[in-house]
C-alpha cells in the first residue's frame, strides 16, 4: 500500500513538473537545466586528463591537449553547440575530478573514469564509451610476468584511483605506492624507483607507445568500463550525452576516432551499461 502511495506521489510530482516546464514556469522539478545552462553559456566545460597519453594529453610540442577523450568532447561540443571551439578543457586528475564536478567547475568528466558502484553514489554516469581492464606495465627485462610476481615489489599508481586496492586484493604482498598522477608514477618507473606500474591497460598502452622499453604483463585482472561523469540529477544533460554516444557509435564517428588513437577497430561487444568488476569485491 505504501509503495503505491509513493509511486502515485512521484507520478503526481512528475506531472506537475512536466506541466511547469510546459507552461514555462519555474517549478522545483525544473531545477535540472544542466543542458540549457550550457547552451545559454555557449560553452561546454569538460574535465579531462592532461597527463594520459592516448586519452587526454597536453602535448608540450604545441601546448594542445590531445587524445581519444578530447576528440569525443570536441565532437560533443560540435553537435551540441555547433562548433568544437566552444569546448573548454579543464585539467583534472583521479583525485580532483569528482570534487571539481560537484563544485561546478566543470560540466562533465571525461577522464578515464571507471563506472563503479561507489562513484555512482557521487555522480551519474553516461553509457559505457570504453572498456578497459587493469594490468601491469614493467620494464622489458623485468622478472614480473604475472600479477602474483608483484609480491614484495614496489608497484606505483596514482592517488585517488582504485587500482591500488584492486591489486592488493589479487596480490596482498604488493607494495602499493601512490603518486600525484600517472605521469609522476611513470617517471618513477622509468627512473627505476618502482618495479611496476598498475592501472587500466588503456593508459598503460599509451605509456608503452611513448617508451618501447616497457611492456604490459599480467592480462586484465579487472573490468573497467569508462563512463562520462555528470553531476547527480543532471538528467537532461545525461540523456543528451547518452544519445550523442549512441549516435557516434552508429554513424561510424566512434570507430574512426578509435582507430585514430588505438590503431585498431573498436570492440563490437561494447556494452551500454556495465559496472566495475574487480577481484575480491
Amino acid at each position: 500500500m505504501r509503495k503505491w502511495c509513493t509511486l502515485l506521489l512521484i507520478a503526481a510530482m512528475a506531472l506537475f513538473g512536466a506541466a511547469c516546464n510546459g507552461t514555462g514556469g519555474g517549478g522545483k522539478i525544473a531545477d535540472d537545466n544542466s543542458l540549457e545552462q550550457i547552451k545559454q553559456r555557449g560553452k561546454l566545460v569538460a574535465g579531462v586528463k592532461y597527463d594520459t597519453h592516448l586519452f587526454g594529453y597536453k602535448d608540450p610540442a604545441d601546448g594542445q591537449v590531445k587524445g581519444f577523450e578530447i576528440d569525443l568532447m570536441k565532437e560533443l561540443a560540435k553537435r551540441m553547440l555547433g562548433d568544437e571551439s566552444k569546448l573548454e578543457l579543464k585539467e583534472v586528475n583521479s583525485k580532483t575530478r569528482i570534487k571539481l564536478l560537484n563544485g561546478g567547475d566543470i560540466d562533465l568528466i571525461c577522464a578515464t573514469m571507471t563506472i563503479s558502484e561507489k562513484r555512482k553514489k557521487e555522480v551519474d554516469f553516461s553509457r559505457v564509451y570504453f572498456m578497459a581492464g587493469q594490468s601491469l606495465l614493467v620494464p622489458n627485462n623485468s622478472p614480473i610476468k604475472t600479477v602474483h610476481d608483484t609480491k614484495g615489489k614496489k608497484v606505483a599508481t596514482a592517488k585517488g584511483a582504485t587500482s591500488g586496492n584492486n591489486l592488493k586484493s589479487v596480490e596482498p604482498g604488493a607494495q602499493i605506492q601512490l603518486y600525484e598522477n600517472y605521469a609522476d608514477a611513470f617517471t618513477a618507473l622509468r627512473a627505476g624507483q618502482v618495479d611496476a606500474l598498475t592501472t587500466d591497460d588503456s593508459i598503460l598502452m599509451g605509456m608503452q607507445q611513448q617508451d618501447p622499453n616497457f611492456k604490459l604483463v599480467g592480462g586484465q585482472f579487472t573490468k573497467e568500463p569508462y563512463g562520462i561523469g555528470l553531476k547527480k540529477g543532471a538528467n537532461e544533460l545525461r540523456a543528451y550525452v547518452d544519445q550523442f554516444l549512441d549516435q557516434i557509435i552508429a554513424d561510424g564517428t566512434y570507430a574512426k576516432l578509435y582507430m585514430k588513437w588505438f590503431k585498431q577497430a573498436p570492440p563490437q561487444d561494447l556494452p551500454r551499461q556495465a559496472v566495475q568488476a574487480s577481484p575480491g569485491k
Binding site: D51, D59, P60, A183, D184, F186, T187, R190, Q210, D211
Partner: peptide
C-alpha cells in the same frame, strides 16, 4: 613535469 613526463 608535464614536459619531462613526455621527454624522460
Amino acid at each position: 613535469q608535464i614536459v619531462y613526463s613526455r621527454y624522460y
